[in-house]
Nucleic acid binder design. Structure first.
Length: 496
RNA sequence: GGCGCGUUCGUCUAGUGGUCCAGGACGCCGCCCUCUCAAGGCGGAGAUCACGGGUUCGACCCCCGUACGCGCUACCA
């Protein structure tokens, strides 16, 4: 009598929302991982639940020094604070799987006792041969042949006693349907005949993901498993495990993948994938979070600009899409610029000072009030904080060379004498305001019988060395009379 | 190959049987504003809703099939 294995439905009562982000520490936080972590975080916060960080470090071959610290650093930078984790004790720790080996061992023994799992002593060579044979026979699918399931108790004890390397395998029962409901995929159905006798405990004594994940999610009382779509295919193994243990299953939600422009799974080959890369490039955490949140989710309206608290407010798993999303850098740039423009000048000041400290400039050369003026003047013109330095370097250092195109276009033979007229007028000003500069410049233009533009363009070139920037009177005022006159003189000497 | 998931403008998406010969956003193009560059405003190009069958008075929306894409198929997660 085949039994049908069922995961709980969406509406089933769950006492407390507890979700986890469970990355393996491979070196850095991938933006796909960020999205998974974010959705978990948003879901937890929205439902007044707990967000847990668990490190899945059960593959000793993949251990990377400092990876966990790096992961945590990135997570925290993004504002994803977890309630329990490796460095934040909770009542369900430890939160590093490598520190829970005895637990997995105990539950594996449990399963073996109930004959839902068994020792397997097959060598890698036999497994390899088996696979090749099955391929040669054109079997629809390669699976372990349950060879070691038929070992007698004595044989097993004998091999164990002799220290023969072994693993523990899941004993999948044939001819059953494994059905579960996924919030995003709806009902998903598998045949148990297509499920392999997965290794649960490796020969080095470490559990595989499948084993550790189920045991931990149960012990940590995880209510919802929100993870990437790449796990959907192995979910039947997990469902089987919950059932064999007699445990209540969590509610599953498998997230669509993040893709490269060519629609393959987002990878390092085609650009930056690590959160730290984006951070280094100068993206605001608010922008990265906002952008990534929208990759696969929307509230059902046209809103695209979100702060974290707004995301928490409107997030729901039901509104997560089911198809992969291409990571579009152009749109990330745009959302970054949006967030930057919405920041107060004071916030930008902090960011800009940080940027200056990390540049070759000396922070003590610039007062807060001076920087604030630059921020105000350039705010609409920068997409990154560092662009205050790269797009308007002339606020920090006088130009030493002049843009050729602008020189050809705006620096005419008559320009020098006209600028001298203007300069003389500037010289006579006493503590000039923006309006004073404007009045005087227009006066000069009028006296010279030329348009203001004829003065403005070469003046801009003289003051900034380039042809783009804030309004001329802002530029004059920020630089100040003395600097303005110096720069005009320098230009007059350089560009004849 | 097997199993699973998916498929609306280039990209992110809205859309839950009639209001859609499909709306918004990014990007692109044009105009306005203007001392430059931006920002902003206005407008434009851009999707036979993957394809083919059904169901229905009526399908982007429901069903079936096909194609294509992606994922999994490890003693990796």
């Amino acid at each position: 009598m085949p039994f049908i294995i069922f995961a709980p439905k969406f509406g089933d009562f769950v006492s407390e929302t507890r979700v986890r982000f469970a990355p393996s520490p491979t070196g850095y936080l991938h933006v796909g991982g960020l999205r998974t972590a974010l959705y978990n975080f948003l879901f937890a916060r929205k439902n007044n639940g707990k967000f847990i960080l668990r490190i899945e470090d059960t593959d000793r071959n993949r251990y990377v020094e400092g990876a966990v610290e790096n992961l945590i650093e990135s997570l925290k930078w993004c504002g994803l604070d977890y309630d329990e984790g490796p460095d934040k004790a909770g009542e369900f720790g430890p939160y590093m799987q490598s520190q829970r080996l005895d637990i997995y061992k105990k539950y594996a023994d449990d399963l073996i006792a109930k004959e839902h799992a068994y020792f397997c002593f097959c060598t890698p060579e036999r497994l390899q041969t088996l696979k090749e044979e099955q391929a040669a026979q054109k079997l629809p699918q390669a699976k372990y042949d349950k060879h070691c399931l038929s070992l007698s108790k004595n044989e097993i004890e004998d091999k164990l006693a002799n220290g023969i390397p072994h693993v523990v395998r899941l004993n999948v029962i044939l001819n059953q349907k494994i059905i579960f409901d996924d919030i995003i995929r709806k009902r998903v159905e598998f045949e148990s005949n297509n499920v392999d006798d997965q290794v649960l405990i490796k020969s080095d004594g470490y559990p595989t993901y499948h084993m550790a994940n189920v045991v931990d999610d149960h012990m940590m009382q995880i209510s919802h498993v929100i993870r990437g779509e790449e796990w959907l295919s192995s979910t039947p193994k997990h469902v089987l495990l919950y059932d064999f243990f007699g445990w209540e299953k969590p509610i599953f939600a498998h997230l669509p993948l993040l893709l490269n422009p060519d629609r393959s799974k987002l990878s390092k080959r085609q650009g930056d994938v690590a959160v730290e890369d984006y951070r280094a490039k100068g993206f605001l955490k608010e922008a990265l979070v906002n952008f990534v949140a929208l990759l696969g989710w929307n509230a059902g309206n046209d809103k695209e600009f979100y702060y974290m608290n707004e995301l928490i407010e409107s997030f729901s798993l039901e509104r997560v899409n089911n198809s992969g999303a291409v990571f579009d850098f152009e749109k990330l740039n745009w959302i970054n610029a949006e967030h930057l423009r919405k920041k107060s000048n004071e916030e930008l000041l902090t960011l800009l000072k940080f940027e200056i400290e990390n540049s070759e400039l000396r922070i003590e050369n610039y007062s807060d009030s001076y920087l604030l003026q630059i921020i105000d003047a350039m705010k609409e013109r920068v997409n990154f904080v560092k662009e205050y330095l790269t797009k308007s370097p002339y606020f920090f250092e006088a130009p030493t060379e002049y843009e050729e195109a602008s020189r050809l276009k705006n620096w005419k033979p008559e320009t020098p004498e006209q600028l001298v007229v203007l300069k003389n007028k500037f010289t006579q000003l006493n503590n000039p305001s923006k309006e004073d500069y404007e009045t005087v410049l227009k006066q000069a233009a009028s006296e010279l019988n030329i348009s203001a533009g004829k003065l403005i363009h070469p003046l801009r070139l003289a003051l900034s060395g380039i042809s783009t920037g804030p309004g001329m009177y802002d530029l004059l005022f920020i630089l100040g009379k003395g600097e303005v006159i110096n720069r005009i003189n320098t230009a007059l000497n350089t560009l004849r």
